[in-house]
Each structure stands twice: as structure tokens, then as C-alpha cells.
Design a protein around this nucleic acid. Structure first.
Lengths: 183, 183
DNA sequence: ACCGTAGGAGAACGCTCGTTCTCACGTCAA
DNA sequence: TTGACGTGAGAACGAGCGTTCTCCTACGGT
């Protein structure tokens, strides 16, 4: 098996297991079993579990933000683009296997003990916040709107994860619409 | 040492360590060292670690909501009481040792593997949401306001925990004020 | 004074898991 | 053909930790 292929399979297994069951409760042997990549190869590709965790979060970050941006691009009106973020959240929340925000969960699990994971979570959230801010700026709205919209989105992710419901997305969208109304 | 005293000391140590470093990275031996309660006594009081975790979350839930309600009671105007929630969040975020919401963190750590912890987190969040709803009702405002306010508060907690900043509280308060404005 | 009981200190046990090692096998260059 | 090398399967190692056990001391009732 090609190294690149083995790497992808390992990351696929890591993503499914880490996201679904939490990082600490998944062993390297579980990754091996789910990916078919031998332990020897796993440790060649990722010298320690923590590096596999980092690679998982990093790949997921790119994909997550990519999917969001792709969805948002379908709308042309700047205000609609902002609201589309919440529409996308609703789709995401409804997906099979949704278990909340991977970064918030990882932060709860490892934020206090792993500086590198904590930094990655902060970077992801900053990137998401910056993206929201860019949408607000593109709509010609005051920059101060971005913070509250970000908080609504974060609250929706956390609440959807805990309550296993898509409803927070619609609530957040509605609140966002109100905040966006001209006064 | 009296049993009741030992129990309190054990819970004090559990709260400080579990909240500060995460649950899984704290061993029963750490609890013993920090509390001065022997392992034998610990296991008499809490037959397994999971029960200590539950007792920790339960006691913290009572105290947390008690402190919040106490703070809110200081205001008399119904609208002010709603906003006071966010003022209290700001105070809380600024406390030494603040590390985000204990329940959100616990959910990230154990939500996928412990049904009892997951249920306790849901119960805590439901109680907080109900409390917010009662403040909204007391102010004679539409019940639909409670959801968005809840999401703002949750988003603020998560963001304050990750970024180690008190700013999300003020942002959430400002957004809440806007949502409360008569239109 | 004596015995039964409770409690403390900490060793011990058993399991999990991250990481490394062994060994047998297949491959490819010379 | 041969030998060096890479690889897979899985055993082995070592640490951490939840839980229990041992042993010793102190004390309370008679």
C-alpha cells in the first residue's frame, strides 16, 4: 500500500473514531483495525498519537471551512451570504453522526493538557471568526456585527451537539436576521 | 475526620482538579493527595470514580445556578435582570482559574462514552435555559426571545473558555440588548 | 487491660494503551 | 541465487490508573 494512501486511510479512520467517540477513548490499535494500516506504518507516518490528532484536526479544518465557503458561495447577495452560514449549520447538524463541533469537543478533552491541540482549536475558531467578519465587511455592515454573529454560531454548535437537535441553527439564523435589520 | 467533612473535602479537590485539568487526566490518587482523604474513605463515599464525577457536576450545578440567581436578584427591573445574566458571565469569565463551562468541557470529554454525564450536562443546560426563559417571561417579552439569548450565552461561554478572554460577555450582552429593543 | 472495629498509608493487582520489538515473508538489485 | 531491506502481524514492554488488599495503629466499650 502506497504511503499516501495509507496516510489517507489512517486519517479517515482517525476522523471517524476520534470525532465519534472522543480522542482519549480511541486507541492506536482501534485506528489500525479501522484503517487496515499496520501499527508499524502508523508510527512511521505519525511518530506519536498526538501528531495523528493534530493531522486529523488540521485536515478536518480545511474540509470544514471549505464546505462552508462552498455553500455560502451559492448565494450572491451579501446579506444572504451571512445568513447562509446558519443554513449550512442546520444542514451540518442534521447529518448522520453529527456530534457537535470537533474543536470544541477536543478542547474540552485536551485543551487543558495539550498546548498544541489548544492552539489548533484557537486557530480554527479565529479562522471561522475572520471568515464571518469578511462576510460582514463584504455586506458593508459594521464590523461590530461579526462578534455577535460568531457567538450565535458557536452557541448553536454547542447546543446542537448537546441536545442532538438542528433547531439551534434556525434560532440562531433568526436572531442573526434581527441583528442585521436596519434600525 | 467526619464523613460529611471528608465528603466536602473530596468534592472540593475534585472540583478544583477536574475543572482545572480535565476529568480523565486526574487520577483518584490526585484527589487523595489534594483532599487528604484516604483512598479507602474515598471509595466508601463514592464507590467509583464516575460517581465522584457526577457528584462534582451536581454540586457545581447547584452552586453555579445559585450564584447566577443571586446576582440577578440584585436588579429589580425585569429587562435589567435579563442583561444581568451577561454581566454575571463577564464577572465569571474574569475569575482566576476560569477555564470555560465545566459542562461543555465534560461533554466534550465524556459525552460520547458516559450516558450519565451526558444526561447531567443536558439537565444543567436545560435548567439554565429554563431560567433564562423565566426571566424573559417575567419581563413580559415573547418566549421566542429565550432561545437566542441562550445561544448568545452559550457562545460566550465557549468562546471565553477557548480564547481566555472576558470580551465575549460584553459582546453577547450588547447583542442581547439589541434583541430586547422594542421594534 | 482487652478486644473488636474503623481508618490511614501505601503496596499490590489487573487492565488499558502508547510504543517498540520480534520474526517470518516477500521483493528487488547484483 | 542471495542477501539486504521493507513490511505486516502481533507479541511484548512499560507506564498510568482504577480499585482492592494488607498491615498497622488508635480508640471505644466493657
Amino acid at each position: 500500500m502506497d504511503s499516501a494512501v495509507a496516510r489517507e486511510r489512517a486519517l479517515d479512520a482517525a476522523e471517524e473514531l476520534f470525532y465519534g467517540r472522543g480522542i482519549q477513548s480511541v486507541g492506536m490499535d482501534d485506528i489500525r483495525g479501522a484503517s487496515g494500516v499496520s501499527l508499524k506504518r502508523l508510527y512511521q507516518l505519525f511518530p506519536a498519537k498526538e501528531q495523528l490528532v493534530e493531522a486529523y484536526l488540521e485536515r478536518r479544518d480545511g474540509r470544514w471551512r471549505g464546505r462552508l465557503a462552498e455553500f455560502v458561495e451559492l448565494r450572491s447577495a451579501p446579506e444572504e451570504r451571512i445568513l447562509a452560514v446558519f443554513d449550512w449549520l442546520e444542514e451540518w447538524f442534521g447529518e448522520e453522526g453529527f456530534r457537535g463541533c470537533a474543536w470544541i469537543n477536543s478542547y474540552g478533552e485536551l485543551g487543558a493538557t495539550s498546548d498544541r491541540v489548544a492552539a489548533q482549536v484557537r486557530a480554527h475558531k479565529r479562522a471561522f471568526g475572520d471568515y464571518l467578519a469578511s462576510l460582514v465587511a463584504a455586506a458593508g455592515r459594521p464590523a461590530a456585527l461579526a462578534g455577535p454573529l460568531f457567538l450565535l454560531a458557536e452557541g448553536a454548535m454547542v447546543t446542537a451537539g448537546i441536545t442532538r437537535s438542528t433547531r439551534p441553527a434556525a434560532q440562531a439564523r433568526e436572531a442573526a436576521r434581527t441583528l442585521l435589520e436596519p434600525r
